[in-house]
Every structure is written in C-alpha cells, then in structure tokens.
Simulated assay, not measured.
Amino acid sequence: MTLGQFHKMHGLGNDFVVIDAREYALEIYPVRAAAIANRKNGIGCDQLIVLRSSDKADVKMQIFNADGSEVESCGNATRCVAKLLGDTTSIETEGGMLLGRAIDGGAIVDMGKPRFEWEAIPLAYAMDSLHMPIGWEDLHDPVVVNVGNPHVIFFVDDINNVPLERLGPIIEVDPVFPEKVNVNIAHISGNSIYLRVWERGVGVTLACGTGACATAVAAIRRGLVKGPVDVHLPGGILNIAWEDGGSISMQGPTTYVFSGEADWNNFG
C-alpha cells in the first residue's frame, strides 16, 4: 500500500490534485496521472501537481495534464502551491524557476521572462512571432509567446463566436508547433482582456494562468493595452503586469477545497 495525503485546490475553477511527495517515494507516470485526474473513477482534476524535493529551490513542482502528459508550467497551480506552502516560496519547474508569495485570498507569482524567439516557442521553422503569417479558418494573424510553455494568441471581436472546442484541438497538434500549443482566444475592451483558452492536453478550462500571462504580454507588445491589465476568464479575473525586458507578475485568488488520503497503487 502506498498511502498518501492529497490536497484539492483550484484557481478560478482550474482545479488541481496536489500531492506532497517530498518525504516519501512516489512514482507518477502517464497512466497513473490520468487515472487520478479522471473525474468518474479517480479524484478528478484538470492537472495533477506533485511536489518533490529540490536542490535549487524550496520545492520542485511536477505538472501532469488530465491526459497524463507532463508539461512545463502552470500559472494557476503555481499560485495554489505558493498559497499552500505559505510565505514566499521558490519553485523549480521544467519551464524555469518561479517565485510565489502568499497573500490574503490568493498569491502573487513571478512567472519569469517571456520568450519570443521562434526556436524558443518552439515553432517548426523561423517566422515572425508577433504577427505569424498563418491562420486556421477565420482565425489569423496570431501572436506566439513562451511563458514556460507555448501559447498562440488570436485577437477577435467576439470570443464566444469562435468554435474553440472544435478548432482548439486542431491548432494544438498542428505540425507548426512541434511540442503542441495552448490556444488563446482574446478580445480587448478598454484596458481589459476577455479570454477563453484551450489547454494542451486538457481542453477548454475555466481559467489558465499561463494563458492569461501570454495573452497580456502579446496585447502589450502589440500596443493594444498598457500593463498592468485585468484578464477576465470564465472562472474569474487575474491581474497581469509586465514591462518589456522584465518578468511577468501574476496576481489572483486560490481556493482550498478539501484534503484526503488515497492508496496510489489503486490508480494504475
């Protein structure tokens, strides 16, 4: 029996199972991660978060999507981990080093510097990352940004008129994105951004922290807004601040739902 505690948390409805595995050995592989994330037969979540010891930071965070794939970064999960651990926490991820600080009702996270070079996204071949000469049906002229994971952003007149559930999985796996991509559909109103996101390996979510960061950066680079900017997602609002050459700051709420224990051997 491999019995361990878990925490269920969410950031704006983007929900996580968080396992602190720093004091015991726990093997997580795609089938097990997907079984834990399953909403009918498992605990249920958008992403599984596994905390491990780090020789570079206070904690290392592994992130598994609901389909079992491991990904580099997750903004909402980073806020949840910062809130769970309290105070100021340095967090090692595959997408880079992050710094989180717990505040009343949530957390502020330094998400690091965004990348714009085509090979850093990555793209399959060289092209302009601020105005990609590519499109899918009525979606065209996107921006691509890497904020620890890859994002493509489309600015549209009405985010609800875009069939994201159909186009999201098509764009996600397009060969131009060799590591797949997160798809963001955004509308600018004043100095606010309204956003829907198709998350790589998850689908449409109520909120995506890295998507909010990438979209805010893209809008600032194009001169559509000035930071800091409020990003409105179906699950709520994130405040994103960024200046050219600097790191991205993301502030938003977190919610602790419940804790429990599970025998991880029962999950694949």
Rank of each mutant, 00 (worst) to 15 (best):
residue 2 T to L: 10
residue 11 G to V: 05
residue 12 L to S: 04
residue 12 L to R: 11
residue 13 G to F: 04
residue 15 D to M: 04
residue 17 V to Q: 09
residue 18 V to Y: 03
residue 20 D to V: 11
residue 20 D to H: 07
residue 20 D to W: 07
residue 22 R to T: 11
residue 23 E to P: 00
residue 24 Y to H: 08
residue 25 A to F: 06
residue 26 L to Y: 10
residue 28 I to H: 04
residue 32 R to K: 10
residue 33 A to R: 01
residue 38 N to F: 08
residue 39 R to H: 12
residue 40 K to L: 05
residue 41 N to E: 12
residue 41 N to V: 05
residue 41 N to M: 14
residue 43 I to E: 00
residue 45 C to I: 03
residue 46 D to R: 03
residue 48 L to D: 07
residue 49 I to E: 05
residue 49 I to L: 11
residue 54 S to M: 08
residue 54 S to P: 09
residue 55 D to Q: 09
residue 58 D to E: 10
residue 59 V to W: 13
residue 59 V to T: 15
residue 60 K to Q: 15
residue 61 M to W: 10
residue 65 N to C: 12
residue 67 D to N: 15
residue 70 E to I: 10
residue 71 V to L: 01
residue 73 S to F: 02
residue 75 G to P: 13
residue 76 N to G: 06
residue 83 K to S: 14
residue 83 K to G: 04
residue 85 L to N: 11
residue 86 G to M: 01
residue 89 T to C: 09
residue 90 S to T: 15
residue 92 E to Q: 12
residue 93 T to I: 02
residue 94 E to G: 00
residue 95 G to Q: 01
residue 95 G to K: 00
residue 98 L to D: 08
residue 99 L to E: 05
residue 100 G to W: 08
residue 108 I to W: 05
residue 109 V to W: 14
residue 110 D to E: 10
residue 110 D to K: 07
residue 110 D to M: 07
residue 111 M to K: 09
residue 113 K to Q: 14
residue 114 P to H: 11
residue 117 E to A: 15
residue 117 E to Y: 07
residue 118 W to F: 13
residue 119 E to A: 14
residue 120 A to R: 05
residue 122 P to E: 09
residue 124 A to E: 12
residue 126 A to M: 14
residue 127 M to K: 03
residue 131 H to Y: 06
residue 131 H to W: 01
residue 133 P to L: 03
residue 141 D to N: 15
residue 141 D to I: 13
residue 141 D to C: 08
residue 143 V to T: 11
residue 144 V to N: 01
residue 147 V to Q: 12
residue 147 V to N: 07
residue 148 G to E: 07
residue 149 N to Q: 10
residue 149 N to F: 06
residue 150 P to R: 13
residue 151 H to K: 13
residue 152 V to G: 03
residue 153 I to Q: 06
residue 153 I to M: 06
residue 154 F to V: 12
residue 155 F to Y: 05
residue 156 V to S: 05
residue 157 D to Q: 15
residue 158 D to W: 01
residue 159 I to Y: 03
residue 159 I to A: 10
residue 160 N to Y: 14
residue 160 N to H: 15
residue 161 N to C: 12
residue 162 V to D: 08
residue 164 L to A: 11
residue 165 E to R: 15
residue 166 R to G: 01
residue 166 R to T: 14
residue 168 G to I: 14
residue 169 P to K: 08
residue 171 I to T: 07
residue 173 V to Q: 15
residue 173 V to D: 09
residue 175 P to G: 12
residue 180 K to F: 05
residue 181 V to L: 11
residue 183 V to H: 13
residue 184 N to P: 02
residue 187 H to M: 15
residue 187 H to K: 15
residue 189 S to H: 05
residue 193 I to M: 07
residue 196 R to S: 00
residue 197 V to I: 10
residue 198 W to T: 06
residue 198 W to M: 04
residue 200 R to W: 00
residue 200 R to T: 07
residue 201 G to I: 00
residue 210 T to W: 09
residue 213 C to V: 10
residue 218 A to V: 08
residue 221 R to I: 06
residue 221 R to V: 09
residue 223 G to I: 11
residue 223 G to Q: 08
residue 226 K to N: 12
residue 234 P to T: 12
residue 237 I to S: 03
residue 239 N to F: 01
residue 241 A to R: 11
residue 242 W to I: 09
residue 243 E to I: 09
residue 251 Q to H: 13
residue 251 Q to Y: 04
residue 253 P to I: 02
residue 254 T to L: 06
residue 255 T to Y: 00
residue 258 F to C: 02
residue 259 S to I: 05
residue 260 G to N: 06
residue 261 E to K: 11
residue 263 D to I: 04
residue 264 W to E: 01
residue 265 N to Q: 00
